Simulated scan of single mutants.
Amino acid sequence: MRKFVQICLTFCVAQSLFSQEVAQCKAPQCAAGSNVIIKAATEKNGDIQVTLVNCTSDTLVVFGGYSGKIRFNKEIQDNNGSWKPYDQESKYAYWCGTGLRSLTIPSNYCTRESYEQSRFKGSFKTKIRFSFVLDQKVVYSNPQTAMVNKKLLLTPEDRSINALKKDLKTPERLTKQQKDNYVNQVVLHRFSKGDHRQAYEDLKNYKSLLAPGEFRALELALLSKYVGAAKNLSRLERALLASKIIAVCERLIEVNYPRKKRVQQYRKFYTQHLLTAEEFQRMNPTSALYQLVVLKESRLTNTEVVLRFKAK
Rank of each mutant, 00 (worst) to 15 (best):
T98M: 13
S243T: 04
L210T: 01
S298G: 11
N184W: 08
M147E: 13
H273C: 12
V306W: 14
Y66C: 10
Q177A: 13
F280H: 09
R251H: 14
N108E: 10
K165R: 14
S208L: 09
K91P: 06
L152H: 03
Q20A: 08
C249P: 01
Y94N: 10
M1K: 11
Q265K: 10
F130E: 03
L300W: 08
G194W: 12
S123T: 14
L307F: 00
L134E: 08
T56C: 11
N54V: 07
S131C: 05
R251G: 15
A229P: 01
S102W: 03
N181Y: 13
T10S: 11
G122V: 03
T42P: 04
S82F: 10
S287C: 06
V133G: 05
R299Y: 08
S160D: 04
T145M: 12
D202A: 04
I161V: 14
G46Y: 04
Q265V: 07
K261P: 01
L233F: 06
L275V: 06
A146Q: 04
L103W: 00
V13L: 14
C25A: 12
V138C: 03
W95H: 09
E279I: 02
E75L: 09
K179Q: 13
C96K: 02
Y257N: 07
C30D: 03
R119E: 07
I246Y: 09
G68P: 04
L236K: 02
R308G: 15
F72Q: 04
Q49Y: 09
Y266V: 15
V139H: 13
G99H: 00
Y290V: 14
V53C: 13
T10F: 06
Y266L: 10
E297W: 09
V5M: 02
V13E: 02
V293I: 14
E237M: 06
N45G: 02
Q136S: 15
T175F: 05
P106D: 05
Y257T: 11
N35M: 11
C25R: 13
V22S: 12
V50S: 05
I128C: 04
L174M: 07
F280C: 09
P285I: 15
V138Q: 10
A247V: 05
D202M: 10
E43F: 01
V186F: 00
D158G: 11
L134N: 08
W83I: 07
M147G: 08
V248W: 00
Q20D: 03
F63V: 05
C249I: 02
V139P: 05
S57Y: 05
C12A: 11
R112M: 08
V294C: 12
L168G: 01
L9Y: 06
I38Q: 00
C30L: 09
Q185G: 02
N149V: 03
K165S: 04
R216A: 10
A277S: 14
Q178G: 03
I245D: 03
S67H: 13
A311L: 12
C12M: 10
L218A: 00
F132M: 08
P171T: 01
L274V: 08
T145R: 10
K207P: 10
P171G: 03
R259L: 12
D158N: 12
K296A: 14
R235M: 05
H189R: 06
A93Y: 14
S16P: 07
C12V: 09
Q77R: 13
K151H: 11
